[in-house]
Amino acid sequence: MVDTLVFIVAAAICLTGALGVILARNPVHSALMLVMTLFGIAVLFVAQEAHFLAAVQVIVYAGAIVVLFLFVIMLLGVDRAQNLELSILPIQRWAALVFAGGSLLLLVGLIVVVNEPVTGAEAMGGAASGDENVRLLARSLFSDHVYAFELTSLLLVIAVIGAVVLARKPKEIQSAVAEELGDN
């Protein structure tokens, strides 16, 4: 009974937030609605005994990624309202409608039609609850998927270097600024 209530409330929060992201005119409101969705999903992770992922979801998504979005919005000052009517090609709305209806029918239809319990090999450890969850996840991560884990460190280094290179001003501007400063 409690499970059902938690799911319904969290799902309502998720869907409201998701619709808010795509319908809000102001990018800042979109970012805040995204936080709402991410929190709802964290609650659903807890309901499914994925405690570590719920914590990481809140820390990484709500704590880092959304703050990054808000920083960029603040830096660029693009927080003015966007006119949905003017900025969209007429055919695009129909394409979006067809995509939404089609994929929704396909996905939900598949889930309903194939409504038999999923069968598969049970893992040795199982997804146990409590502290066991973190232990199992760590064992899986550092034994079976250790190479992938090491590769993610490489990916993060590449992302950081790429961000630094992209954020640098082009050389001409830099030297122009330096000359101006020198003149003054």
Binding site: P117, V118, G120, G125, G126, L136, S140
Partner: peptide, 11 residues
């Protein structure tokens, strides 16, 4: 991951 009892999904 929950249904199959397999931690791989969470990984």
């Amino acid at each position: 991951a929950r249904q199959l009892g397999d931690i791989g999904g969470q990984t």
